[in-house]
Design a protein around this nucleic acid. Structure first.
Length: 275
DNA sequence: AATCAGACCTGGACGC
DNA sequence: TGCGTCCAGGTCTGAT
């Protein structure tokens, strides 16, 4: 579900709600999400510690504690968080509860249980989840440049869309925004990555940054399950130009938007504007 | 090292 | 109403 802008929106909401408060208890409502939940480790690492900071890496949310521990929260396709008073009636898909010393709960909800929540020692290579260790550059950082993308696409025969979805190369782009940014950059998603020119690499990088920043400013995109901490939907959905728009006219040229499958996933593009 | 199909799980939309 | 099929924002695994 959530890509970088949605994870960023949730991380900012959690930062407002959690920083300065102590975690007093952890409870699981299911034995496993994508992986078995290690409740003992979560309790040992978190209970009694104050939250100092909430950050994001790719699509992962990281909640840091004063004792040097941290929680990695990956939302999968349907993960969400909410803050509510302890004792509030459970929702059907709430999977984890973190009790706080201000009488509130931080709850993790996840319909499909594709998410991942685990604690680790921040800064300790041996105790850092493999997902974080192998993550590529931040798309909004200086490391993600036209030069970088051009070099990483050389001799790659996979579709440029698939390369941009590879979290080990660049971390945070997902299936909605990749269609959007390639439309803006006028590059067909099915193009062999190695055929992308240096000029196109510059454009792809620029459009990646602008689409992600615009979406963060709008609070993310809501297709079905996503919501921010306060339950509000993201407003970027109305700014999507190709995703989910198969059969509708391209706003720039009027040609009908096409839907194809790449890497087993829905992909949208304009056959005239994108080359 | 890279690529690809399949797996994980639940629910909504659709057709009959 | 009820069934069946297809689809969904993400990773991870195991086989080539």
């Amino acid at each position: 579900m959530p890509e970088l802008p949605e994870a960023e929106t949730i991380a900012r909401g959690l930062s407002n709600q959690l920083v300065g408060w102590e975690i007093t208890g952890v409870k699981n409502l299911v034995p496993a999400l994508r992986n078995p939940l290690n409740l003992r480790k979560l309790q040992k690492d978190l209970v009694g510690a104050k939250v100092t900071e909430v950050t994001r890496r790719g699509k992962g949310i990281i909640v840091k504690l004063e004792n040097g521990k941290a929680v990695l929260m990956q939302l999968g396709m349907t993960g969400a968080c909410r803050i509510c008073p302890t004792g509030t009636k459970l929702l059907k898909h709430e999977r984890l509860i973190f009790h706080l010393d201000n009488g509130l709960d931080w709850r993790y909800e996840d319909i499909r249980k594709f998410g991942n929540v685990q604690s680790f020692t921040f800064g300790d290579e041996n105790d850092t989840p493999e997902f974080l260790r192998s993550l590529g550059v931040e798309p909004l950082g200086e490391d993600f440049s036209g030069k970088f993308l051009f070099e990483r696409t050389r001799k790659r025969i996979c579709a440029v869309k698939e390369l941009l979805l590879n979290q080990k190369i660049v971390a945070g782009i997902g299936n909605i925004y990749v269609s959007e940014l390639l439309y803006r950059a006028k590059v067909r998603p099915q193009r062999e990555a190695g055929t992308v020119t240096r000029r196109e690499a510059d454009l792809i990088v620029d459009e990646t940054k602008s689409v992600l920043l615009e979406s963060i400013a709008a609070g993310g995109t809501t297709i079905s399950d996503y919501k921010a901490l306060d339950g509000t939907a993201g407003k970027f959905e109305q700014d999507l130009r190709v995703y989910g728009k198969a059969g509708l006219a391209c706003a720039k040229c009027g040609k009908l938007i096409e839907k194809i499958t790449i890497g087993g996933r829905s992909t949208f593009y304009c056959p005239r504007c994108q080359r």
